[in-house]
Nucleic acid binder design. Structure first.
Lengths: 246, 246
DNA sequence: CGCGATTTGTGCACGCCTTCACAAGCGCCT
DNA sequence: AGGCGCTTGTGAAGGCGTGCACAAATCGCG
C-alpha cells in the first residue's frame, strides 16, 4: 500500500468517539465515489443506483453499498441515491466542507508541479504557502505564491492555521522538514520523499513514492514475461537458475 | 488503496506459472525493502537482521520475515540477511535487472516534473520518450528529450520496445491515451489522471491520484477535530443533526 | 388499494493478511 | 567438541475486507 499509518490517540480512554469509525478501506474509496458523483451531477443526474455509481467508480456494487451503509442510510430502496445529498454527506465525512489550507515544502522539480496542480484547488484544498531551504529559490513566484524560507514556516503556519503539509524535498531533508512541520502544529503530512518518516503518534502520514509504483508494474511485467515465455514457445529466459541457486 | 488491478490472464489453464506468485501485499512492500537495503549497503553493512531491516523499512519484523520467506531462504539463522545477496534477489524478482524503458504522455505541469524526476532513473527506469497532443508543446526539449506528437507513439513504442506507459494528461484525455498505449503494445500503465481507465485484462493499471491522498488526510483531520472537541470542552459542532436527519 | 418491479441494506461465509509464538538452525566462545 | 545465545522460518490464530444472496422497503401502475 506504500503508506504509513499512525496510532489513534487512545489518550482519553473511556470517552467514546461519537464519530463514525469507518474502515480504512472504505475511507480510501470515498474520494473516488465523490469524484464519480460530481461527474454525475454535472451531467444532470438526480439519482444513481448503486450499480451505476459503482461502475463509474470502478468497484463492485456490493462493496459500494456496504461502504455507503457505513455512513448511514442515504439511499431510497427501489430508486437509488440522491446525488447532491450524497455529495454533501461524503464531503462532510471527509471534512471537505471546510476549505483546508495546505503548505508545501520543497519547490523543486516535483514541488513546482504540485504547487500548480489544478486537482488540489478543484477539490477544496488551497495551497497557501510554499517553502524551501534554498535561498536561491526564496523570493521566486510560483503559481502566484512567493516562495518563503523554511524558517518562516512556524509563523506562517500559525497565521494561516495550516493543518496539512506536503513534503516534496530530496530524501535527505524529509525528516528534518517533518520535524519542523510537527513543531509548527501540522497534524497531517503527505510525503513524496522516499524513506520512512518518524513522527509523533497523533500525526498522520501518507506516503506517495512514484518510483515504487513503477517497480510494482515492473514486477507484473516480469511475471507476464515469464508466463508467456513457457507456453508461447519462444526461447525461455533460462528460468531462474542463477537466482535460485543457493 | 486507490488503484485498479486487472485479471491474471487465465487463458491457458493447466499450465502452471512456475513463477513465485507472491501476495500482492508483499509485492507492494518489496520496493520499500529494496530502498532500505540500498541505504544499508551505502553505509557499508554486510548483513542485516530482520529487526533492523524492518525498522529501516517501517514495518513489523514478523511481516518482513514472512515476506522474504516467500522468495526463498536467503537469510542465515543467528546472523541475518546478506545485504548484497538480498538486493540482487529482490531486484531480480521485481524485474529491475533489465533496464526498463518508459514513455510519458502529457507534458503539462505534472508531466514536466515526472520527466525530470531523478527517482525514476536512479531505480532502473529510463524515460525514453515524451508525447503530447498539443502541437504547441511538440518539439520542446524537456530534460534532454524532445516532445513528440502522440501520433508517433506506436512507432516509437515498437522501436524502443516500451512496455510501461505513464499518463499525466488532463482527465478528459486519459482514456483515449490509454487506448493508444494499449494498441501500441504497452502492457503496464501508471495513471495520474483522476478517473477510471478501461483496459483489456492483460494490461495492468496502477493509479495515483494526488488529490485523493489529501482527501484521506482531510478525513483524519476531521476525525481528530471531532475527537478533541468533546473531551476538551469547547463547543462541539452540534453533532450531525442536519446530516443525519431523514 | 394492492401488486409487482426494482433497489437498498445486511447477515454470512470465505479468503487474504497480519501477528504471535516457538521450533529449527547457525555461529561463536570456551 | 559441546553448549549457549541469537536469528530465521513457519504453523496457527485472529482480524479485516470482500462478495454473495436475500429480506426489507419503496415507487408506480392498474
Amino acid at each position: 500500500m506504500s503508506q504509513q499509518r499512525q496510532g489513534s490517540t487512545p489518550g482519553d480512554a473511556g470517552v467514546v468517539p461519537a464519530f463514525p469509525d469507518l474502515p480504512e478501506a472504505t475511507i480510501a474509496r470515498l474520494p473516488e465515489y465523490l469524484r464519480a458523483l460530481h461527474h454525475l451531477a454535472e451531467t444532470g443526474a438526480e439519482t444513481v443506483s448503486s450499480e451505476g455509481l459503482a461502475a463509474a467508480a470502478g468497484v463492485n456494487s456490493a462493496k459500494l453499498r456496504k461502504d455507503l451503509s457505513h455512513l448511514g442510510s442515504y439511499g431510497t430502496r427501489g430508486v437509488g441515491y440522491d446525488v447532491t445529498l450524497l455529495i454533501d454527506q461524503v464531503e462532510y465525512i471527509l471534512g471537505l466542507d471546510k476549505n483546508r489550507a495546505v503548505c508545501l515544502v520543497g519547490v523543486g522539480n516535483l514541488g513546482h508541479a504540485l504547487a500548480g496542480y489544478a486537482g488540489f484547488a478543484s477539490r477544496g484544498f488551497r495551497v497557501v504557502a510554499l517553502f524551501d531551504a534554498d535561498q536561491g529559490k526564496v523570493g521566486d513566484t510560483v503559481n502566484g505564491l512567493v516562495v518563503r524560507h523554511i524558517d518562516e514556516l512556524p509563523q506562517v503556519a500559525a497565521e494561516e492555521s495550516i493543518a496539512i503539509g506536503v513534503i516534496a524535498t530530496p530524501p535527505g531533508s524529509a525528516q528534518a522538514v517533518a520535524d519542523v512541520l510537527v513543531a509548527a502544529g501540522v497534524t497531517s503530512i503527505l510525503n513524496f520523499a522516499p524513506g520512512v518518516l518518524s513522527v509523533p503518534p497523533n500525526v498522520d502520514v501518507r506516503k506517495v513514492d512514484l518510483a515504487i509504483e513503477l517497480q510494482i508494474l515492473s514486477f507484473h511485467e516480469h511475471r507476464k514475461a515469464s508466463l508467456t515465455a513457457l507456453p508461447g514457445g519462444r526461447s525461455a529466459p533460462a528460468g531462474n537458475q542463477e537466482a535460485v541457486g543457493s
